[in-house]
Amino acid sequence: MDWLNAIVQGTLLGGLYALFAAGLSLIFGVMRLVNIAHGDLIVLAAYLGLSTSIALGMHPLLVLVAVVPAMAGMGYVLQRGVLNRTLGDDILPPLLVTFGLSVIVQNALLEIYTADPRKMDAGGLETASVDLGGLTLGVLPVLTFAVAVGVIAGLQWVFYRTALGRAFRAVSDNQDIAQIMGLNKAHVFGLAMALSLAVVAVAGIFLGIRTSFDPSIGGGRLIFGFEAVIIGGLGNLWGTLAGGVILGVAQTVGAAIDPGWQLLAGHLVFLLILAIRPNGLFPRMDG
């Protein structure tokens, strides 16, 4: 039962990791940009949620209404104001600029909120659970997983069923020709980053309700998201969810063996998959 429990809890944890990963996957798909500050932006969203929730006395889940558009707007401005200038054949500028951004966000948060761990108060939601024949499922992890599935289904729909998604795919395929079709790629990239940070906002809020957080944990969240993307296979959103689940299960099973092994087990499973399936478990089939 312990093992079953570890696997179920790990699967649910994987939902959170998929939320970390989805935004990363999205912008890589559209503009081949890897945002090193992604994890720090998740933490930023958590703090934004915390402050809004305290200031307005609102439930942390309700502040999504404010944090999601705020992060999306920030994403658009960030992309058009800074990141678009870094895109090109050379991979160095986007990497180093987002790396600098990561340090800035982290230290700005440190300046404002100090290094003390904080947590969002979601009342009864945090402890509520349902008993399923000896298996205890927390309502919050189940909700997180459901939201992750919803977010990925939503992104999938946007990508393959809407004009915006067509624009994303067209620009991703061939920037010049997309431009000739009247698509302003700077704007399309801005929208992609806005969408990415909207997902980051959701991820940050659920992170902040689930565990305590401090300004230094962004790097770790980036790594989890990145591992989920690579395990699942680049460019495959459902694969990213599967990657998150595999990572989550590896961690909880590792922790069940020895608490010190939680993170290490996750990394080792990632490296193992990288060794045997370098393109991930479910690489996108083109065509």
Partner: peptide, 22 residues
């Protein structure tokens, strides 16, 4: 364009629709 340069991620109809975007 030379060499046609269709969008490989888009279906035939989507390629046409995106042409009508303007």
């Amino acid at each position: 364009p030379e060499g046609r340069q269709l969008f490989p991620s888009l279906s035939v109809e989507e390629n046409l629709i995106i042409g009508g975007r303007v």
